[in-house]
Structures are given as structure tokens and as C-alpha cells.
């Protein structure tokens, strides 16, 4: 496939994504995998794969983003996931707003101007509450597979409040609830609510500018979207490829490099 003019790679804590764009910046190719412990090897494999598709990587700029962006030696440039997400999301929707990205290690809320620029952003504080890890940890106690969590939570109306937002405290709270025979689905719903409340606090800090956009792997969980709408009273819009926004944004930066005629390694 020869339409690929520029590449973006997003090396995240849970997944690694690579996106190719054509001259127009349209996403025309991608790969997504779970992150492996040896990031460098995985990136090398990704690029091998890419070479098979495009022939040679010469003259195709690559921009890296995500936590492991510094580890991608082949990259022409690195840009933070904040700026890349904003770029990718703006390309998809063509308007500004507030982007919420709940990741495994990190959550962030980004205010995007009508022109697609980052106005302000916040990230979760040091503890894991407010990130995907909060749900994962506590849900593993409940023996519910990750991809079923959201549906389970939405299957009930009854919800038990989880007051602790500390992951350690919440876990012991969950254990006690199970011991008291509270239905698992109600606990799950409460856990989701707790995570969303924490996220809404971050949204308020940035200042909510509609529409609310959601990206990241957590979008696959339907409860997140529903409860976020409930808590904010705003409609949430989802991109077509929620997990690829960062990589797409990175590829768009790569395309700019190409168009600027900058040196490509």
C-alpha cells in the first residue's frame, strides 16, 4: 500500500499504536498491539512491518508520542500525547471542545480551542485513583473480565456508593461489600461512578467547553460514556478510532514536517 506519506507512533503504557496517513492526512493504515515489556524490540517490529507495507521508510517522517516516545530512536521528532491527542481529535471532528482521555496509568483532560490548539490541560495526581488502573484493580477482586465490566455495571439500576477513591481503601471497601452480599453489578456501577466523579473534577478544573469528547481504550467500556454524560449533563462524542487519536495526531505532525520540507532521516 503506497498511500502512506507520514507515520505516527503512540507508545502507551498498555498499548502501542502506529498510524499511517496519506497526503491529505487521512488515516489509511494502522496497527494496535498490547504493550510488551521490551518497548524497543516492539517498536522495531512495528517498523519492520511498516517497511513491508511501504517499501522503505526513507522520506517518510515518523513522529513518536506517548510515554515511550523517547525510546523510539527512529523518530524524526517526538511530541507529547497531550498535543497529539488534540491534533488527532480536531482532525476527526473539525471543532474544539473538551477531550477526556482515561488511560491505564494516566488520565487527562484537554481543553481544545475552536482552531484545534491546546488551551489548557490537567492530568491525574500521583495516586492511581482516577485512572483505568483503579477499575482494573478493584474489578479483578470481583472476578469480572475487563471487557464485561461496563455492561455488567449498566445491567443494574441499583448502585452502591464507593466512598474511598484511594485504590487501596476502595479494594477493602469492595471486599466488605462482597462479604455483605451486595450484587457484583451494583458494586461495579459504584466503582465506575467513583472514577467518573474524579474525572469530572478534572474536567471542571480545566473548565468544561462542549462538546465533551472521549478517547482512549476506556471508550470501549459503555458505562464510562453513559455515566460521564449523566454526571456532566453533556453529550459525549466518540471518535471512530478512539485508541488511535494520539498516533493519528503524531502522524499529522509528521506530515507537516514532510510538507515543510524539513530534513527526514
Amino acid at each position: 500500500m503506497s498511500g502512506i506519506k507520514a507515520l505516527g507512533i503512540d507508545v502507551g503504557s498498555t498499548t502501542v499504536k502506529i498510524v499511517g496517513v496519506d497526503t491529505e492526512g487521512k488515516m489509511c493504515w494502522h496497527i494496535l498491539e498490547q504493550a510488551e515489556p521490551r518497548v524497543e524490540d516492539q517498536v522495531e517490529r512495528f517498523l519492520d512491518h511498516t517497511r513491508q507495507v511501504v517499501g522503505t521508510l526513507d522520506r517518510i517522517p515518523l513522529v513518536a508520542t506517548g510515554y515511550g516516545r523517547g525510546l523510539v530512536e527512529q523518530a524524526t521528532r517526538s511530541v507529547t500525547e497531550i498535543t497529539c491527542h488534540a491534533k488527532g481529535v480536531y482532525r476527526e471532528f473539525g471543532h474544539g471542545g473538551t477531550l477526556v482521555d482515561i488511560g491505564g496509568q494516566d488520565s487527562k483532560v484537554i481543553g481544545i480551542s475552536p482552531e484545534g490548539k491546546v488551551l489548557d490541560f490537567v492530568m491525574n495526581d500521583k495516586c492511581a485513583a482516577g485512572t483505568g488502573r483503579f477499575l482494573e484493580n478493584t474489578a479483578s477482586r470481583l472476578k469480572v473480565p475487563l471487557d464485561r465490566m461496563g455492561d455488567e455495571a449498566l445491567s443494574v439500576v441499583e448502585e452502591v456508593p464507593i466512598s474511598s477513591t484511594c485504590t487501596v481503601f476502595a479494594e477493602s471497601e469492595v471486599i466488605s461489600l462482597i462479604a455483605h452480599g451486595v450484587p457484583v453489578a451494583s458494586i461495579l456501577r459504584g466503582l465506575h461512578r467513583s472514577l467518573i466523579k474524579r474525572t469530572v473534577a478534572m474536567i471542571r478544573t480545566v473548565g468544561i467547553v462542549p462538546p465533551l469528547m472521549l478517547s482512549g481504550g476506556v471508550v470501549l467500556n459503555p458505562a464510562i460514556c453513559r455515566l460521564l454524560e449523566e454526571e456532566t449533563g453533556e453529550k459525549v462524542v466518540l471518535p471512530r478510532y478512539p485508541q488511535l487519536m494520539g498516533a493519528h495526531g503524531a502522524a499529522l505532525f509528521a506530515l507537516e514536517i514532510l510538507n515543510d520540507g524539513s530534513q527526514v532521516s
Binding site: Y67, V79, T80, E81, I82, T83, K117, V118, L119, D120, F121, M123
Partner: peptide, 9 residues
């Protein structure tokens, strides 16, 4: 990342 993203802004 926080500082770098801020510098990008």
C-alpha cells in the same frame, strides 16, 4: 510530559 506539553502550548 506535563512540562513538555506545556512548552508545546
Amino acid at each position: 510530559t506535563r512540562i513538555e506539553a506545556f512548552l508545546e502550548i
